[in-house]
Design a protein around this nucleic acid. Sequence first.
DNA 1: TTAAATGTAATAGATGCTGTTACAGCAGGA
DNA 2: TCCTGCTGTAACAGCATCTATTACATTTAA
Lengths: 143, 143
Amino acid sequence: MAANSRLTIAVHILAWLALAHRRGTELLTSDQVAASVNTNPVIIRRSLGDLRRAGLVVVRHGAGAGWRLARVPEEILLVDVYDAVEQDPLFGMHHTEPNLACPVGKGIRPALGEVYGRAELALRTEFGSTSIADVLRETLLTS
Amino acid sequence: MAANSRLTIAVHILAWLALAHRRGTELLTSDQVAASVNTNPVIIRRSLGDLRRAGLVVVRHGAGAGWRLARVPEEILLVDVYDAVEQDPLFGMHHTEPNLACPVGKGIRPALGEVYGRAELALRTEFGSTSIADVLRETLLTS
DNA sequence: TTAAATGTAATAGATGCTGTTACAGCAGGA
DNA sequence: TCCTGCTGTAACAGCATCTATTACATTTAA
């Protein structure tokens, strides 16, 4: 399948909020973020909603509304972002229940559950070693 | 997105071929494998085609046709299976090019490419530590 | 009160996955 | 040589998800 871009969009948003804050801009609107990501503001607001529910960003309503990071970018890890925007497991099980009369059909799902659990843990551990500040630093190297 | 089940189906097939061989059955047809996975034989043949192109299984044509492992199950690692059936990256980039006039838009893709590369490496390393023989052993514990 | 932005529903188009039917191609055995 | 059984693959349907877009009620600082 073509993988979705939710993690990419969310990290882009957070990096842009971090840079704007460093430059002295306290709040960004979804329109301003959308101008950097180059997509529709509703896409941005949906992603920001995920990030707000995860406690990574704070919204201000009414006139002069906008968004800012809920904490310093050094303390927002990619695993936090991953958890905020991805809920489905990486690998799906059988669509239909396998044949339980076959020993493989009977035992394969718990066995694969263990394997997939270890794989997702390895991924989350790796994502736990990188912060939004790290991503922003590497992003600005290119310019 | 709901993750696809290709890796699950492929590992199930290989574990079943391994067990059948241990029990003295040299070849299994796609119908026989489909009876264990509980799906359509064409689904099984498509997956077996991926595994054949990766050199993990061998097919025999004509009357008395069927499939067997290309090597012992201890030497078929899950990373081999992953490579055989998954080609898309785990995390997609932006659908549309970000705004290159923005420093984040300009540098975010190479930065994320590095991050995603490390994440996929962590996943592949974990999958390199488990073989079809390991999965089969854990599968049979349940029965 | 007003203006500006959020939150979210509804919808459309594109794409991918699973499942199914159909059929040509291949090769061992009678 | 012909038959038979299975592979290989195309074509298609149904379903789900993702991105993008429009629309509009809600919120709140000024």
